[in-house]
Amino acid sequence: MNQRQVPPLRTCCTVSVPHQVMTALAAASLLGSAGCAGPGGVAGSNSPDKTAASSSDPVTASAPDSGVTVKKYADGEYTQVGGYVSPGGNEEIGITLTVKDDVVTAVSTEPMPSNPTAKLYQERFSGGIQDQIVGVRLDDLAVEKVAGSSLTSGGFAQAAEKIKSEARK
């Protein structure tokens, strides 16, 4: 798992519509790979209406073990801040993806709870709390069944495609 801190290469525009939260996470999924979610700051601004400019050119140097295949996506950290309306009011969430050799090597989210309900959910209670879920590729697991709900929304897939094309070199 790549724990190296990649300098922020590009900060995606910050937005305040619900599907953008999903989009950023979907990018993590569709770019593929085991996310090693660790603590990590959100590189972008938290201000919903502010658009951060692209910074430097993408780093193109290949990792030593990356072979000769052409990379589809620029390495780097991608950050989005999304807002959504919960029953308790507006909430924001920051999501940072680290892309390395066409693989998402890290996903981190930063909650920005602005209402009491969201804070309440963060309180501990009997049982347990894990700060961050960690995804492992199903291909790498020996399982007999999967319980969940595969994404079926066409709109969701389209949004994810947009993020992929943004990261595409």
């Binding site: 697991l141 999967v146 994404l151």
Partner: peptide
């Protein structure tokens, strides 16, 4: 499709699908 009931000789290992990524699981 993910809601299941089992009666078996041995336990069935079920992956919990990542809420945002159907290619990944968050637990077993």
């Amino acid at each position: 499709s993910g809601d299941m009931r089992h009666r078996g000789r041995r336990p069935l290992t079920v992956a919990l699908e990542h809420p945002y990524d159907p290619t990944r699981a968050i637990g077993l």
